[in-house]
Computed example of a mutant assay.
Amino acid sequence: MMEVGVLGDPRAAQALVDYLLSQGISAQSQATNDGVAILVEAPQFHRGREEYERFLKEPYHRRYMAASWESGQVHSGRDAKFDYGTPGLSFFQSLVTQSGPLTLLLLLVCGGIWLFWNLGFAEAIYGATHFFASWEAMGDGQWWRFFTPSLIHFSAMHVVFNLLWWWYLGGRIERERGALTLLILLLVAGTLPNLAQFALQGPNFGGLSGVVYALVGYCWISGRFNPNSVLALPPAYVGFLLLWLALGFMGMMNMANYAHLGGLLVGMVQALLDHRSRRR
Rank of each mutant, 00 (worst) to 15 (best):
V238W: 03
I38N: 06
W135Q: 10
I38K: 07
A13H: 02
W117F: 10
F45E: 09
D9F: 01
A246L: 14
V211D: 00
V212G: 00
L187D: 07
V230D: 00
A214T: 00
A37Y: 11
L119G: 13
R172G: 06
I184R: 08
G141W: 13
Y60P: 09
Y52V: 09
R224L: 13
L200F: 04
F132R: 09
A128C: 10
M253K: 07
G178R: 11
L233P: 00
L7H: 01
L200H: 04
L233M: 08
G248I: 06
L108F: 12
F205Q: 01
S222D: 02
E51H: 15
S94M: 05
Y126D: 15
N228A: 10
G267H: 10
G139K: 12
C219W: 03
R175M: 08
W144V: 14
L95E: 05
R63M: 04
R54C: 09
V211P: 00
L104Q: 02
I152A: 11
A37L: 07
Q28F: 12
G202R: 00
L39N: 07
A232Q: 03
A124S: 14
L243V: 08
E41W: 06
A80H: 12
A124Y: 14
L163Q: 12
E51I: 15
A259V: 13
T86E: 09
F55P: 06
G223K: 00
G263W: 05
E176M: 01
F55W: 14
L169W: 12
M252P: 03
F121P: 05
R54A: 13
E123N: 15
V230C: 03
R11G: 15
F147V: 11
D83G: 10
L182C: 05
N226H: 05
P234A: 10
W143T: 15
M252N: 14
A128H: 11
F205W: 02
G239N: 01
A189V: 05
F91H: 07
R78P: 09
G8Q: 01
